[in-house]
Simulated scan of single mutants.
Amino acid sequence: MAQSLYMVGVLVGSAVFGILTDRFGRKALLIWCYLQMAVMGTCAAFSPNFTTYCIFRFLTGLAISGISLNSATLCTEWIPTNVRAWAPSGYSYTTGQFILAGVAYAIPDWRWLQLTVSLPFFVFFLYSWLFVESARWMAVSGKPEQAVKGLRKVARINGKMEEGAKLSTEDLKSNMQKELSSAKSSHTIMDLVRTPVMCRISYGVSFIWFSTSFAYYGLAMDLQNFNVNIYLTQLIFGAVDFPAKFISFLTITFIGRRFSQAFSLILAGLCILANIFVLPELQILRMIFAVIGKGSLAASFNCTYIFTGELFPTVIRQTGMGLGGTMARAGSILAPLVQLTGEFSPSLPLIIYGVTPIISSTITCLLPETRNMPLLETIDEMER
Rank of each mutant, 00 (worst) to 15 (best):
Ser4Lys: 05
Met7Ala: 13
Val10Ser: 12
Gly13Lys: 01
Ala15Arg: 03
Gly18Thr: 05
Ala28His: 09
Ile31Asn: 12
Cys33Tyr: 01
Thr42Val: 03
Ser47Leu: 03
Pro48Ala: 09
Asn49Ser: 07
Thr60Ala: 15
Ile64Leu: 13
Leu69Phe: 13
Asn70Leu: 09
Ala72Gln: 11
Thr73Asn: 13
Pro80Ile: 02
Pro80Trp: 06
Tyr93Met: 14
Thr95Cys: 10
Phe98Gly: 02
Val103Arg: 04
Ala106Arg: 00
Ile107Leu: 13
Ile107Phe: 12
Trp110Phe: 03
Arg111Leu: 04
Thr116Asp: 12
Thr116Gly: 09
Leu119Thr: 15
Glu133Asp: 15
Arg136Ala: 14
Arg136Glu: 15
Ala139Gln: 11
Gly142Met: 10
Arg152Gln: 11
Arg156Phe: 09
Ile157Glu: 11
Lys166Asn: 13
Lys173Tyr: 09
Ser174Asn: 13
Asn175Gln: 14
Gln177Cys: 03
Lys184Met: 11
His187Gly: 09
Gly204Ala: 07
Tyr217Arg: 07
Leu232Glu: 14
Thr233Tyr: 08
Ala244Gln: 07
Lys245Val: 12
Phe246Asp: 10
Phe249Pro: 00
Thr251Phe: 00
Ile272Gly: 02
Asn275Gly: 04
Phe277Ile: 04
Gly293Ser: 01
Phe307Tyr: 14
Leu311Asn: 05
Leu334Gly: 00
Ala335Pro: 05
Thr356Ile: 07
Thr364Asp: 01
Leu366Val: 11
Arg371Cys: 08
Asn372Met: 11
Asn372Asp: 15
